[in-house]
Design a protein around this nucleic acid. Structure first.
Lengths: 231, 231
DNA sequence: TCTTTTTATATTTTATACAATCTTCAAAAA
DNA sequence: TTTTTGAAGATTGTATAAAATATAAAAAGA
């Protein structure tokens, strides 16, 4: 399937490369090199980078170029706290409005992934599945702006979630919790569901923080950001 | 003071023109015309429009151009509900961490605006003052990501806040509530402050909805969006 | 007359070329 | 030895020009 514009294609691909860890935090993204990579001029590359800047994955320094951003532990904690707040809000609005087709849809996504899980490591796809399930769960709330914010938060933290999954084997646990979450939702137990959701998110957060802090002393010091943070 | 790049200057100015109502929802923003306006080429204009797209003020339709977005009543309600959620979170975190200098700063902003209020209509500046005060109040929470989301929500709803202020005389009431908000914060009364904040935001929302629905039958039918909404 | 196809025009999107800015590295002065 | 200055090189930011795409208007067929 063809993309609408080259800028969009390039943006999607660079995003993937950042999220997959190919471009770690602090690396400079040279417009020339990327343009050559995709065999396009620098203009669509520039537009792609601007899009990614808006998503928080990239930061522009005037006349110095674009660099991938890096999140501190405190920022990661903040992002996950916000996820608790917003996703809790969404789930609480969604549960009373939950219809049978919506429940079916969410259940189907779970089953599909359960099957995929058995066939081997699917870390690359896990983020998408994860988000698809949560989205299906929140859809009945019919709050597109809130969903949009949640999506933003997910994009920003996605890199670190992947990293955690590479180091720990928490996918199965998350998957079990997803099943419980769906069951609570089916039964209309909003309080129990939200409580579980909060634990679900915060424990993932702590897992990431543990990996981050563990990795710092496991390998050498990680790449420091190439530039001092401005402002 | 000079801007860093032309694209940023153009983005700031177009944003202002959208928020001030010069470009109502649904108007097409032609790159040619804007480039001529600012006496620059179309590329910085394009980049500015991309920035504004990320902020939700503009939407691109591939090969058809950029159009200013328009919010439905339900979307406005959703935005203000999210403001309640996030700003409540921020205020609650901020109050226990409130220092004397922070309180002073917020108080100073209030006094400055009180003074400006007497000297005449300042609707154009009110949004900035309003945001500056709220920001000062939330700053002790030290949650930049949350502040960022709040800022986004404000930008999106700013047009409608201005509109309300043009039609109703609610500035004084909001100003009184700001003083009360600061007083509760000084006294460490988090519950009372958050409750007031919630009322403060939701009443503003209802004011906007009233104006929107009133205006529709006051003047003729407003400009319909030039394009059918896609997706 | 109505529908479908074709052509034309306007606008966006992308490529190429140029200008402005920043970084680097060496050389000179303190 | 350390600091500062300045020119070369590299990279970004912008302008102009060409290509691609969508809207509209016109023409052909049913």
């Amino acid at each position: 399937m063809a993309y609408k514009t080259r800028a969009q294609f390039v943006a999607d691909d660079i995003r993937h490369r950042i999220l997959s860890g190919e471009f770690p935090g602090g690396t400079q993204l040279r417009q020339d090199a990327l343009a050559a990579d995709y065999d396009v001029s620098r203009i669509p590359v520039r537009e792609a980078l601007l899009t990614l800047e808006a998503e928080g994955l990239v930061e522009f320094y005037p006349h110095r170029g674009a660099f991938t951003t890096e999140l501190s532990v405190s920022k990661i904690r903040e992002l996950f706290d916000l996820r608790v707040l917003l996703e809790g809000h969404l789930l609480r609005q969604a549960i009373p409005r939950m219809t049978e087709p919506a429940l079916q849809k969410a259940g189907q996504i779970l089953l599909e992934y359960d099957a995929a899980l058995d066939s081997g490591s699917q870390i690359d796809n896990w983020s998408d599945y994860n988000f698809a399930f949560h989205e299906a769960l929140y859809r009945p709330a019919d709050l597109p702006e809130a969903m949009n914010l949640v999506s933003q938060l997910n994009t920003k933290s996605d890199r670190y979630i992947r990293m955690q999954l590479l180091y720990t084997r928490e996918i199965e646990k998350a998957e079990r919790e997803h099943h419980d979450l769906l069951e609570f939702s089916r039964q209309g137990k909003a309080d129990a569901a939200c409580e579980l959701l909060e634990r679900h998110i915060l424990e993932a957060c702590e897992g990431i923080v543990a990996v981050l802090e563990g990795r710092v002393q496991a390998s050498q010091t990680p790449d420091t950001p190439h530039l001092e943070r401005q402002k």
